[in-house]
Design a protein around this nucleic acid. Sequence first.
DNA 1: TTGAAAGCGCTAACAC
DNA 2: GTGTTAGCGCTTTCAA
Lengths: 347, 347
Amino acid sequence: MQRVSLTELAKQLNLSPSTVSRALADHSEVSEATKARVRKLAQELNYQPNQLAAALRRGRSNTLGVLVPHITGHFFPQVVHGIATEASKAGFTVMICQSNEDAAQEKKNIELLRHNQVEGIMVSLANTTQDISHFEELRQQGVPLVFFDRVVEDFRGANVSAVVLDDHAGAYQVVQHLIEQGCRRIAHFSGPLHMSIHKNRHQGYRDALRDHGLPLDEQLIVFCEQSQAGGTEAMQRLLRELPAPPDAVFASNDLAAVGAMRVIKAAGLRVPQDVAVAGFSNETFTTLTEPNLTSVDQGCETMGISAVRLLQQMLHHTAEHRQPQPRNVVLKPQLLVRESSLRKPRK
Amino acid sequence: MQRVSLTELAKQLNLSPSTVSRALADHSEVSEATKARVRKLAQELNYQPNQLAAALRRGRSNTLGVLVPHITGHFFPQVVHGIATEASKAGFTVMICQSNEDAAQEKKNIELLRHNQVEGIMVSLANTTQDISHFEELRQQGVPLVFFDRVVEDFRGANVSAVVLDDHAGAYQVVQHLIEQGCRRIAHFSGPLHMSIHKNRHQGYRDALRDHGLPLDEQLIVFCEQSQAGGTEAMQRLLRELPAPPDAVFASNDLAAVGAMRVIKAAGLRVPQDVAVAGFSNETFTTLTEPNLTSVDQGCETMGISAVRLLQQMLHHTAEHRQPQPRNVVLKPQLLVRESSLRKPRK
DNA sequence: TTGAAAGCGCTAACAC
DNA sequence: GTGTTAGCGCTTTCAA
């Protein structure tokens, strides 16, 4: 079986290519009879339209670009899933690239996406990215751009939107909840503050303590790698160095929380009765730990959906030659209380 | 700044488009001087080649299609990562689609990929797929096809390769290991046997018992949902119905194993001393459970890499008008022994 | 070493 | 309703 082109269909039907094109696009100006004939033959010959040609001719590819640090792990696959689903609904296909957390690859991928004529790009930054000239260039050339999660701070302008999570609010909720559970000496395991997620979670912690009239004890704040090993080490240090253990731990991510929990249990203390524990991100394994881990759900899919919608808005505006209205969306995370922090019966 | 085309470059340089095209492609027939001039202006005007046009003209898109059931979870993101990385090395871009486990979407996505002129497709089947006519069609039309993980059984022919995991060998290794640890009454939590992964793991279990002279006790085989809840229920049933608990549990996936482990511990039994536990897939959380869970690593990335290589082979053959040589690759999984099954000191 | 010309497959303005 | 024509941006013979 040979590949059949639209022109080929036209010949066999004694029609012009334009009519066939219109028939296949279900234009109203084509007679029903003709449409039927065209469709029938297209079906018979298994005609497959060539999107590349169509896109070239139209000057619109119907493709959106996605650039993420990686497509493994918990967070990004979920976001990408949201993006892919929402884009598909809107009739777009997506082209997905990974930077592997490498600024150089990020730059290359941006070019790749452009060369493939994507109509807009959704990006979450590689954590090594310092130089943002490649994004500046996109902005200047009017390529609609949406940053999500890891955004370029203070990078505003026409054609650049962003969707981020309110990490501060998430952390605040967690700490508030711990206080409500009767905890008074709440430790915090933080990641490096140059990463905005950790900075904001850290600030949420401080603000929640302040707003509830609790003193801030710097000894209770530990900067550690946000991994299980990091959490383990941090917790060991606290138990060793403090006169009495804290009555709660809020870790900036779930892995560190798990590490802490293990150490607490190994020390003969009970979770949550002696030490309540909470993490952040609502990883899959939070319902597999013992006890199940209280965490903050980030609504990953929602973030993907938002990103696509923001991009679509900009595309519409661009198409209508109106000034695009960049928007910044801040998503509210959701506290999920599980056994690891629940000391009082649920209301 | 305007979008610049190759033709535009040519005009500004007083060259023909063909020369510019050759210069950019670094053809040897173009003088170095000309190449330099072209590159300089291309740089200055920030020329971005239009892949769509190039692909259309060449008849080669340089794009590979990927179709997976979903891009969330543990397994598929890893495989896709392998695919994307390997494809990128070979100078291909990938287009990733999800079927969401839905046969109809799968069919649609196949069309989408074709319309986008992918040069070949890598597929892992949706679990609802019964009718495989859309793949049969691809095969007949000579679109190179590689199935991975979830393959169409007995679907062989030119232009169709496959890469699967040797689930039987993986299960066999697990059970052999449990036997070596002194276990004699090894229970098996299986998924539905119409899924080849579960069927093969189940058979591996039986064969390992047989080869080591252990009797097969049908009472020790439980069919249950391969989830934490499923494992929980299955384990509860065993403890309730058997005169004595088994001395090991091999679950067809890690979640079910976690469910079992919890029930065992709740019943006051120790893991692994009283009951050893092992799962399958080496999910991320296997190092987070208490004790850490013995499992089988599937080498997900390797699978992705293999898929791309198989596809490339077929593309080469096709390009050289040779009969493509479809190949079937079977990857060997790796047993990872952790605390949940380790009764004896490591050798 | 360079240029002219043709055309990949499709769509859309403009005719009739 | 349908056809004619032109051209999206690029590559690739073929000729000079």
